[in-house]
Design a protein around this nucleic acid. Structure first.
Length: 114
DNA sequence: ACGTTGACTTATT
DNA sequence: AAATAAGCCAACG
């Protein structure tokens, strides 16, 4: 998968790079990413793209990507159900009941910040 | 090749 | 307010 240097223009790669640009201690949503790419209704593909994140040599902070409710819906794909929460807490993000606390403040909108 | 599933979201009932 | 329907697009069987 075209290692470092080669930037693909596929929907997946756009998602990867965008998520990688998410500041530490911040979180974003699938819908925001999808919307930033032009299709706000294709949020599912964003999650699916994350599924292929392992295909890329670059680490994709998928733990910073949550659903619109701030809920860690994708934590089940991390291998450990608590790993995603631990990662978020490690960045200073408070998580409880699989939901990001102060999600509204921590929300990083690529269409607004980028 | 067709049908189902999926880390979502919005609208409608 | 809660539940259901629909829309999106790609991958898997």
């Amino acid at each position: 998968m075209t290692p470092s240097g080669k930037a693909e223009h596929s929907f997946f790669d756009q998602v990867y790079q965008l998520v990688q640009q998410v500041p530490k201690g911040r979180v974003t949503t699938y819908g925001a990413i999808a919307k930033a790419l032009g299709s706000g209704l294709s949020a599912r593909m964003v999650g699916w793209a994350m599924n292929g994140s392992h295909s890329g040599v670059n680490p994709v902070p998928a733990h910073r990507v949550v659903n619109r409710n701030g809920q860690l819906t994708g934590k089940i794909h991390f291998g450990s159900a608590t790993e995603m929460q631990e990662l978020l807490e490690n960045e200073g993000i408070a998580v409880e009941n699989d939901t990001v606390i102060n999600f509204r403040e921590l929300f990083w909108d690529p269409a607004n910040e980028l």
